[in-house]
């Protein structure tokens, strides 16, 4: 810290130190220590023990595989939906637009358990679509389609929320220029829109993926937690823990925690690119604005 940052810096030094200490303590107790202890427990029997806990139990193997398929599918659905919805909201003005934007946030404000129950009410055997699904012989609840639906629901806002402000800041001019130069809708999207939003999109995807991998509540309700069939990684962690198999439980938990750390690094890198891009945009706009003002009588 620079000593002459503010004239009052000397007087407020003890308070500043206290605040910093409090912040460090909270981060340490709530984040660092638990995270380290997860890894400590997971590797308490060495790397071999850790690997055995993951690889030797067929139910755990299945849970890892299920998570690695359900999450990408949900993220892919959210990516397509997010780009389309953000484009609609950022480029068009229509009645009900603000309501639609608010609806995007519902998955954030509703408890995931409620979301799961709602899905059961619709797709369950006694649910609204139950008879139709039974006639078609499609199983949604207690099966992987239900997991995908629940995961998609809880991660829905992440991509679209990320894209709307970026698309609004960029504006429609580049897209119109591309159209006037003869580009088709798809060409405009792949050559102009997508490159402009790529970092924001990637940011949304990384966040959605982290949330999808870790989702517990909604998935818990719709999965029926059938070992070796509908257990995802978080569900498996909980089940192993309930069965007093703590080292195995912590080994799976360490995989999830490791994923979180990777997400953190990715997020950091992407956010720096995003900041650089928004600075570029501002610089370009700034130049135009000063020129405009200079020419006004």
């Amino acid at each position: 810290m620079v000593a002459h940052a503010t004239p009052k810096s000397n007087e407020s030094k003890p308070i500043a130190a206290l605040l910093v200490a409090a912040a460090v303590a909270i981060v340490g107790i709530l984040i660092v220590v638990p995270l380290v202890s997860v890894f400590y427990e997971a590797f308490s029997r060495g790397v071999g023990g850790w690997w055995a806990a993951l690889a030797d139990d067929p139910d755990t193997r299945h849970a890892i595989w299920l998570s690695l398929t359900v999450a990408p599918v949900a993220v892919a659905i959210n990516t397509v939906f997010g780009v389309a919805a953000a484009w609609l909201v950022a480029r068009f003005r229509f009645p009900g637009r603000s309501l639609l934007i608010s609806l995007f946030d519902v998955p954030f404000s509703v408890s995931p358990v409620v979301a799961g129950l709602a899905l059961v009410l619709i797709f369950g055997r006694q649910g609204l679509l139950g008879p139709t699904l039974a006639w078609l012989d499609w199983k949604v609840i207690f099966s992987w389609p239900g997991l995908v639906l629940a995961t998609t629901f809880v991660t829905l806002p992440l991509v679209v929320r990320e894209l709307i402000p970026v698309m609004e800041a960029i504006g429609p001019e580049e897209e119109m220029a591309a159209v006037s130069l003869g580009a088709s809708g798809w060409q405009v999207f792949t050559r102009v829109t997508l490159p402009n939003i790529r970092w924001a999109l990637l940011h949304g995807i990384v966040l959605a993926n982290a949330r999808a991998m870790g989702e517990f509540g909604a998935v818990y309700v719709v999965s029926g937690h059938i070992a070796g069939a509908t257990d995802t990684m978080p569900l498996r962690v909980e089940k192993l823990f309930q069965e007093y198999r703590q080292p195995a439980s912590m080994a799976v938990a360490s995989v999830l925690a490791g994923l979180a750390l990777v997400t953190l690094v990715a997020k950091f890198v992407i956010e720096r690119r995003l900041e650089a891009e928004s600075r570029d945009l501002e610089a370009a706009r700034g130049l135009e604005n000063t020129r405009l003002e200079a020419t006004r009588p």
């Binding site: 001019e173 580049e174 591309a178």
Partner: peptide
């Protein structure tokens, strides 16, 4: 038709 936009609308990337 060639169109030149007010703020140029060049493709930034």
């Amino acid at each position: 038709v060639g169109f030149v936009f007010q703020h140029y609308a060049l493709f930034r990337h």
